[in-house]
């Protein structure tokens, strides 16, 4: 049952801040194994929706199902443990740890993270740590940060931190990844490569991606489906070609004066 339906279902979710509805009855589905883009003008509620889905905010209304299971009352760590992991718009690289440690931290099934296991099964913690280090280095190669593995993450540039967060998210062996503007500040060549890797992960492992992105070229080239939000609601949902002709979408962008974005969409 759960292996065929949508991997993520968001129904009529509301989140208010001091009387202002940041998310106002948003409803959307994300198909398993898809790459879906979430777009909309600034202040549309995209990042707030990510915060609600990943458990950082608790919605006042509505429900969220991941793999058929309610997650809207769950805490962020338990949602992440279920295989739904997110990155942050303003990166949360752990600057006082090395790049490699950042990625290794994200590993799951590490007995060395549990006090009793360190005492009772020190060998298995060490073995797992070797596997984790190897896998972390692989992922760092994947995002071209392997040269910086032993540097403090605080020395990385904004774009490099985005890449680090991407690698860290993959280290958790997720089934679905929420990416909040993963390309911001990343150099374009590397960005393109990242997109290819994302597609490869989608095809090879059936991983699902939902990404907030402002670059319409990226959105159109990578995603098979686009969801458009405005003023806390989903106003359009469909294949890229269809959505960009949708009058409500054009109005929403023009209405906020984001003509450049709309221009990008019209291409």
């Amino acid at each position: 049952m759960s292996s065929s339906g949508p991997i993520l279902k968001v129904s009529r979710v509301e989140k208010h801040f001091g009387g202002i509805a940041a998310v106002d009855g948003a409803t959307l589905d994300v198909a398993r194994g898809s790459i879906t883009a979430l777009i909309g003008p600034n202040g549309a509620g995209k990042t707030t929706l990510f915060n609600v889905v990943s458990g950082f905010y608790r919605p006042e209304r509505g429900e969220i199902l991941f793999e058929g299971e309610r997650i809207d009352r769950r805490s962020p760590h338990s949602i992440a443990q279920r295989g739904l992991v997110r990155t942050f718009q303003i990166t949360k690289a752990l600057t006082k740890m090395t790049v490699l440690e950042n990625v290794m931290l994200a590993a799951r099934n590490q007995p060395g993270e549990h006090l009793w296991q360190i005492v009772l099964r020190p060998g298995s913690a060490r073995r797992r740590e070797r596997e984790v280090a190897e896998r972390a280095r692989e992922l760092l190669r994947f995002v071209h940060l392997e040269r910086l593995a032993d540097d403090y993450a605080g020395t990385l540039s904004g774009g490099q931190r985005k890449l680090l967060e991407f690698a860290r998210a993959l280290m958790t062996e997720p089934r679905m990844v929420l990416l909040d503007e993963p390309m911001a500040g990343v150099n374009p060549t590397l960005g393109l490569e990242l997109l290819e890797r994302m597609k490869a992960l989608q095809v090879d492992l059936g991983m699902t991606f939902l990404l907030i992105e402002h670059d319409m070229e990226v959105v159109m080239s990578v995603s098979e489906r686009v969801i458009v939000m405005n003023e806390g609601r989903v106003i359009a949902d469909g294949p890229p070609g269809e959505v960009q002709r949708d009058q409500r979408v054009i109005d929403a962008y023009l209405g906020t004066g984001a003509a450049a974005a709309a221009g990008g969409m019209g291409r």
């Binding site: 990943s54 760590h77 992440a80 992991v85 752990l94 006082k96 740890m97 994200a106």
Partner: peptide, 15 residues
């Protein structure tokens, strides 16, 4: 150490 620096980062990774 990850909690010391940024609790949200740690919990977003399942800790």
């Amino acid at each position: 150490r990850s909690i010391r620096e940024d609790e949200d980062a740690a919990s977003s990774l399942g800790k």
